[in-house]
Structure formats: structure tokens, C-alpha cells
Design a protein around this nucleic acid. Structure first.
Lengths: 218, 218
DNA sequence: CGGCTATTTATACACTTGCACAACAACGCC
DNA sequence: GGCGTTGTTGTGCAAGTGTATAAATAGCCG
């Protein structure tokens, strides 16, 4: 019995679909972030990225001038999503300033912001900030944006307590609170199983309230 | 006038010196850390590293089974130096517990611990911790060691204030204080010029004392 | 001073990388 | 339905990668 039906021509070209430009670019950026998170910048080759995006390597150069540009855009996308998520926890209006601050801390110290994959990306890219001024500036802008949000909430909280902090004191509080959240965020991402559910958030809230000199809620 | 003396044979082999084994290994590890800090894991190739160490690439395989082992040892060396430096700030015995705690915070938020190069290395390697359990465990051990030191000092400080915290409270304080130091350390490394001399340390000390509920020194 | 040995150099190799380019085929338009 | 546009594929290439291995020489011991 000869080989059954094998009608596929030996040189069959791969089938493909044309996607919208925006969609393809997003897919490539997502595939890039996945590759970096999994294998680091080393393993994020055009072929790996293309495979993950379900296309062939050559296509990347149709959408990006070079691989470096793709990485650049991927980092920008990552930063955008991170700050967006973080700020989203602040939009609840129908709450007291103090409640909003606590909710902010809680949101930043639980999933999905506590996430090992995001941390890997954050660390991998920031490791290049010392040598790449573009990355350094991007971080600084994101950091200052975040800190200003913190400062605004702190001002509201203290105002509600009828305290009148000056600008320097406000700045100090914002820097310290930002550090508390960052430090706990890192530990949660790196060793989340060392902490019980909600423990990091509880520690964070207590630390923040101590920093602001807030007594227990009456 | 014919070419002056050019006695060097065209195929002159490179001159070299034989170094002690320990010395060579250290040089290679240092060269590796330098390469990673400057060009990231991507740019840390055997040839780059060897060039920096003043040898040729083949020699690396004479001292390490493979490049991956060299990177592993380099990371171990980095961690060792970091924790050693951090703990060194705790050895001053002739001081009150509270002064020792303040000195500890100050030391961790100034040069040489605040250092962009070390941060780059820290971030670059930790970016791989999500995928490399070895790195993850190494970090966890270093972190716990550091945190235990903090917890011990905190216990002394509170004892001197005649307070009797239970184990859970002590643990909470240590986690929070560790986060404060880490968060401020990161900002100092990444954007040191945003803070005036000694500002981070001052913020850190105030935040830590607030966390512990310490009043002003009388 | 001459030989031994292990450190070091140099070369080779198989493989991967980013990028260039030509062929191809999916989809919109008539 | 045919046809042109262009998104997409596949192949090729030069440079760079880690590793293997042979050749050379520095330094010690007699």
C-alpha cells in the first residue's frame, strides 16, 4: 500500500491572515514582553518573539525599524500599564481621604499589581537604566507621577485632620510612603508565599498611618 | 632610509603572566560584574569579559566549566558583598540601640551602598529570579538574613524603651522597616540627584521611628 | 641552565543573531 | 471574478556566540 493521501505540496507555504496594523503591533509588543519576562533580554530574540506572536521573524522589521525600537516601545507600554493600574485605585470618590489612602495601599499590595511577571520586566528593564538615559528618564517620570498622586492624597488626609503641613513636610511624607509601598511590593512579588493573604497590605497601611501620625479610627 | 627596526615577528604571540588561581578567578568575576553592569546580561559575552580581565576568551573555560557557572559565581559574589556591607553598619557597640538603628539606616542610604552600578547588577540579576529558582532562593536568603538583623535591632530598641512587643509585632516592624530602607535605597540609586545630601537618610530615620512609635529624643 | 607542567593563547567550529531582500498570497476594489 | 497592493513568508548572509582543542610559553624544581 503506497503512502496514503499526502496532497500537501512539499514546499507548502505557511497560511496566514492579514491583521490590522494596530492589532499586529500590539501582538508583537505583548510577545516581546512575554519573551523578556520568561527568558530575559538575552532570550528575547526576533525569532522567539515572532514565534510567540504567531508570525515569522521577518515581519518584525515591517512594523519596527529594528529590534531595539520594539524593545523601547514594549517598555513604554509596560510603564503605561503599570502607572495606569496604580492610579486606578484612587478614583473612588465616595470615601473619606483616609479610606482612599488605605484603599490605595491595599490595591498596590495585592494582585494584580503584586505580580512576579511584572516585577521581572520592571527589574530587567531598570537594570539597563544606569546605562540608558532614556530608560532612566522614563522611570523618573513614572516615579514622580506616582509620588505626586501620593502627595495629593496625603494632603487631603491631613487636611481632614485639620493639620497644616508645609510643602517640605508633604514632600517628605510622599517620599516615605512611596518607599514603603515600593519596598513591600518588591517583597510581595519576589516571595509572596512568605506572607499570608492581606498581610502586606495590613503592614503597609499601619506603616503609612504611623508615618502620618494618624491615631486609630474612632 | 628603510623602515627602522621592526624586530617584532609578524606572528608574535601575546605576552602573558601566570597569575595565582584565586587571583585570576576574582579578576574574572569582577570583569563579569563590570560587563553586566555596563552592558547587561546581553553584552556580557565571554570575549567582553575576557577583554576586561586582560586575558583571552579561552581562559574562562580553564577556570569555569561554562559561562553560566561564571555568571552564577559572580552573582553569589555580588550578594555576599552587599549583605556584608549592609551588616557592617551594625557593629558599633558603644552606642544606644536607638543610635545604632539610626546609624544602620543612615549607612544604607548613603554611599557606598547607594550606588547606581550595584543597583544595575541587583536589578539585572533579580529580573531573572522569576525564571531561575536558584536566584530566587539566593535572594530570599539574603533578604531574610537582612530582615533578621533588623528585627534584632528593633527588639533592642523597644526593650530599651521598656516595651514588650510579641513576635508577630516584631516581625511586622522588621518587614516594614526593611521595605522603607529598600524603597528609599532604590530611589537613591536611580535618581540620587533628586535628593539633597543626607535627605534620604533623614526621611528614612523619621519613617522608621514613626513605625516604631518612638517619640523625639529627650 | 634545561626540562616539565599547567596556564594561557590562538584557531576552529557549529550555531545563533539581527537584518536584507525577493517571492508570494490575502484582501479590497473595480 | 480578476487584479493590484502590500502584509507576510522564506531564504540568505555577515557578524557574533559559546565551546572544543591544539599549540606555545611562563615559571618552578632539579
Amino acid at each position: 500500500m503506497p503512502d496514503a493521501a499526502d496532497p500537501a505540496p512539499m514546499n507548502a507555504r505557511r497560511k496566514f491572515r492579514r491583521e490590522g496594523e494596530e492589532r499586529r503591533r500590539q501582538d508583537l509588543i505583548d510577545a516581546t514582553l512575554d519573551s523578556v519576562a520568561e527568558h530575559g533580554l538575552r532570550g528575547a530574540t526576533v525569532r522567539t518573539i515572532a514565534l510567540r506572536a504567531g508570525v515569522t521573524a521577518g515581519l518584525i522589521r515591517h512594523y519596527f525599524p529594528g529590534k531595539e525600537d520594539l524593545l523601547q516601545e514594549a517598555y513604554a507600554a509596560l510603564m503605561g500599564r503599570m502607572t495606569e493600574q496604580a492610579k486606578a485605585a484612587l478614583v473612588m470618590d465616595d470615601a473619606s481621604p483616609r479610606q482612599r489612602l488605605a484603599a490605595f495601599v491595599t490595591a498596590n499590595l495585592n494582585a494584580p499589581i503584586i505580580d512576579q511577571r511584572v516585577f521581572s520586566l520592571w527589574a530587567t528593564f531598570l537594570g539597563r537604566a544606569g546605562a540608558d538615559p532614556t530608560l532612566a528618564r522614563a522611570h523618573r517620570e513614572g516615579y514622580l507621577g506616582f509620588r505626586n498622586e501620593v502627595e495629593a492624597v496625603v494632603a487631603e488626609v491631613l487636611a481632614a485632620e485639620r493639620r497644616k503641613p508645609d510643602a517640605a513636610e508633604l514632600r517628605r511624607h510622599a517620599i516615605a510612603i512611596n518607599a514603603i509601598i515600593d519596598g513591600l511590593w518588591i517583597e510581595g512579588c519576589l516571595a509572596g508565599e512568605m506572607f499570608s493573604q492581606g498581610e502586606l497590605a495590613a503592614i503597609g497601611i499601619k506603616a503609612v498611618e504611623a508615618e502620618l501620625g494618624l491615631g486609630p479610627l474612632e
